[in-house]
C-alpha cells in the first residue's frame, strides 16, 4: 500500500535508530498501574529453577555482588529511543553463576504483579542486568526502582520494573503485555511490536 501524505515532511533523526523509533532526551514512563513503592530493606530478588530450587538475595547481599557500569541505547515500543543511557547494576551472568538449569525460558516477575517472558539466552553473556542506578542516582520508583531488569537489546517493556524474581521454565508462556497483544520476543531492529510482527 502506498499512501503518500504530500504535506508531510517528517523529521529525520540522523541517528542510527531501529525502524519506526524517534529520539528523545526525556525518559518517558509506561506502566499499567500505580507505581509500587518498595523500600530497599523490603526488597528481595530470587531466581527459581524449573525444579523449584530457589536462589535468593536481599538488598544487602545484592549490593555486595560485583557491579558494572552499563551504557546502552534503549528502545520503547511506544516509539521513543534514548541513546547512551547510563546504568549501574549486577550482570545476570553473576546472578546465574551458581544456578543449574536446562530450561530455555524465563518469566520475570515484578512487585505489583507485572510479568514479562524472555528466552534465557537473551539474559546471559553480558546482555542483561539487574540495574539499581540510572545516570548516577538511585533508580526512582517510577522507573522501576529500587531495581529493574535491564535487557537493552529488546523493547523496553522486557526490562521489567520493580523486578523481584526470575522463574525458569521449559515452556515459553506469555507475560503481561505479551498476553495483551504485544510481540512475544520484541526485537526493536526487526520492529517486533505486536503479535505476529
Amino acid at each position: 500500500m502506498g499512501i503518500v501524505s504530500p504535506g508531510f515532511t517528517g523529521r529525520r533523526s540522523g541517528s542510527d535508530l531501529p525502524p519506526g523509533q524517534y529520539l528523545t532526551r526525556d525518559f518517558p514512563v509506561l506502566s499499567a498501574g500505580p507505581t509500587p513503592r518498595i523500600l530497599p530493606e523490603h526488597w528481595e530478588f530470587s531466581i527459581t529453577t524449573e525444579t523449584g530450587e530457589v536462589h535468593k538475595w536481599d538488598w544487602q547481599a545484592f549490593l555486595q555482588l560485583p557491579s558494572e557500569e552499563i551504557t546502552r541505547d534503549i528502545h520503547c515500543v511506544t516509539r521513543w529511543s534514548k541513546l547512551q543511557s547510563e546504568w549501574k547494576g549486577v550482570s545476570l551472568d553473576t546472578l546465574f553463576a551458581d544456578v543449574e538449569t536446562g530450561a530455555d525460558f524465563v518469566m520475570a516477575h515484578s512487585y505489583g504483579g507485572y510479568t514479562t517472558n524472555l528466552p534465557l539466552e537473551d539474559l546471559l553473556d553480558g546482555q542483561a542486568w539487574i540495574a539499581y542506578e540510572f545516570e548516577g542516582e538511585p533508580l526512582g520508583a517510577e522507573h522501576g526502582g529500587p531495581a529493574r531488569l535491564l535487557v537493552p537489546h529488546l523493547y523496553f517493556w522486557k526490562s521489567a520494573k520493580w523486578v523481584r524474581g526470575l522463574a525458569l521454565s521449559d515452556s515459553d508462556d506469555l507475560g503481561f503485555w505479551e498476553s495483551a497483544g504485544y510481540h512475544e520476543y520484541g526485537d526493536p531492529w526487526k520492529e517486533q511490536r505486536y503479535a505476529g510482527d
Partner: peptide
C-alpha cells in the same frame, strides 16, 4: 497519573484495580 494513582492507593484502593495509561516524560 503518578500523583493520582498514589493518592488512590493511599486512600485504600487496591492497586490491582487501578489501571493507568501515561504519556510523556516524568
Amino acid at each position: 497519573v503518578e500523583t493520582v494513582a498514589d493518592l488512590l492507593v493511599a486512600a485504600g484502593h487496591d492497586p490491582a484495580r487501578v489501571r493507568t495509561e501515561r504519556f510523556g516524560p516524568t
